[in-house]
Design a protein around this nucleic acid. Structure first.
Length: 418
DNA sequence: TCTGGGGTCCTAGGACCC
DNA sequence: TCTGGGGTCCTAGGACCC
């Protein structure tokens, strides 16, 4: 007989802010950021001034993640704003992961501050799942110095929703017999995968709570919202068959790097210059993980915030920065309508092994020598730092928009983002 | 809105083929 | 061809997550 599935979801409370607070305390600060209205924010001078994470006291001022620092300060004039440090977050994320490895061999790092553990059958080793979740919560607080929420459920979505019920520093359960009490009264927007558009579409049907969605006729949901509707209808009814997938068992689908420019680019030359470091860093990251790409894409966000993208499949896989850059510039030129550009992005998809590259005779010499050059450059940057070697055209440029996990930094392996 | 960046997945529509 | 219908592939756009 199969053991009953038990999934744990571990989520760091105000992750970036907690980790900044911890780091400051370790370096002699006397104030704990977590005890005052504070946020981790992007750099306003380069037009990235948004709230990335907030303290519990900041939440009391209705400060939201993603809102501008300008707006956050208006709500709380004494707000403390600290900049972000991604290598630090990666390090703390790894500490958490190491601790969790003691409790299950099947762990999925869902993001830099969230993990799913498949606890099925582990009761025989570690005892009751809820008691174990409590132990994890306590050990994070005492041994790691930051608090987490642990959700316990029969599948991933219920474990994750359980984690949201009471915060911070709590263990919550969400099993099928608890749905009506704990899940169904909540606003439908709080359900995983129900965003603003789905919320609007459901509101047109008079559906405002998770329970109302759960009790909808699935045919009506499918009619309105297609397959995505069936997904969230299943979630509302506590159904989620998806397995906990350890990250080393699945490769990435794509790599991308985008940056809001310190000032709008108004000429093709300006845009090309901004694309160069983006292409360099994203290609280097892909190469470091041992991939080549057969699909290149460029993204433009205009000054009015409208977004367009353009992509092209390549006949041959490539992995050298210069060739990527040339293709991306060509794609940009085809896409750009001449208006001022706020953000530029480059994306590498259709990943494959570099050794299956099918080069034509004419291209092969050029690309092989470029690839060899890149490999040497990668080694030098790994040893002496990100900016120790760069194309001359990138001298005097601002590098604050380079990959957060480019060379040398400690990168956590996750399915998504970070 | 003084509105980031890195991902995944889905859908619609057009090109092309039989 | 004043062209049907189904299948596949490709691209653009959008929704959602953290």
């Amino acid at each position: 007989m199969c053991a009953k599935r038990v999934i744990l979801h571990v989520d760091v409370n105000s992750a970036f802010l907690s980790w900044e607070a911890l780091d400051l305390l370790e370096h002699g600060a006397t104030l704990d950021l977590r005890t005052v209205p504070s946020v981790v924010g992007g750099d306003e001078t380069s037009r990235r001034g948004i709230v990335l994470a907030k303290s519990t006291p900041a939440k009391a001022y209705d400060i939201q993640t993603g809102e501008t620092l300008f707006s956050a300060r208006r709500k709380c004039p004494d707000l403390l704003v600290v900049p972000s440090h991604y290598p630090l977050y990666a390090k703390q994320s790894n500490r958490l992961y190491t601790l969790l490895c003691e409790y299950s061999p099947v762990i999925q790092r869902y993001s830099i501050d969230e993990c799913f553990l498949d606890f099925t059958g582990m009761e025989y080793v570690h005892g009751d799942a809820v008691a174990c979740a409590e132990e994890i919560r306590r050990r994070c607080e005492t041994e790691l110095g930051f608090t987490v929420n642990v959700g316990v459920g029969p599948n991933k979505v219920l474990a994750k929703m359980a984690g949201e019920l009471r915060k911070p520093n709590f263990v919550n359960t969400l099993f099928p017999h608890e749905l009506a009490d704990k899940l169904w009264p909540l606003p439908v927007r709080e359900l995983f995968m129900v965003g603003r558009q789905t919320e609007r579409a459901l509101a047109r049907r008079g559906v405002h709570t998770i329970g109302e969605l759960a009790h909808m006729d699935p045919k009506a949901v499918r009619y309105d919202l297609k397959s995505h509707g069936m997904l969230v209808w299943g979630y509302a009814n506590g159904m989620d068959p998806s397995p906990v997938v350890p990250n080393d068992s699945v490769g990435p689908k794509s790599y991308s790097n985008a940056a809001t420019l310190p000032a709008d680019a108004c000429t093709a030359a300006d845009a090309h210059a901004a694309l160069r470091p983006l292409c360099e860093s994203v290609t280097e990251r892909m190469r470091r993980d041992g991939w080549a790409t057969k699909l290149l894409g460029v993204q433009i966000k205009y000054a009015d915030f409208s977004v367009v993208q353009h992509q092209r499949a390549l006949r041959d896989a490539i992995c050298d920065s210069r060739t990527v850059f040339e293709h991306i510039c060509a794609l940009f030129d085809e896409l750009w309508d001449g208006r001022p550009v706020r953000l530029l992005g480059a994306r590498l998809g259709e990943l494959c092994q570099p050794d299956c590259e099918q080069l034509t005779l004419e291209d092969s010499c050029k690309q092989i020598s470029r690839a060899a050059l890149d490999r040497v450059a990668d080694c030098i940057r790994a040893k002496y730092g990100r900016t120790s070697l760069m194309p001359a055209t990138m001298l005097r440029q601002d590098f604050s928009h380079l990959d957060r996990y480019a060379a040398n930094s400690e990168k956590p392996k996750t399915n998504s983002p970070f």
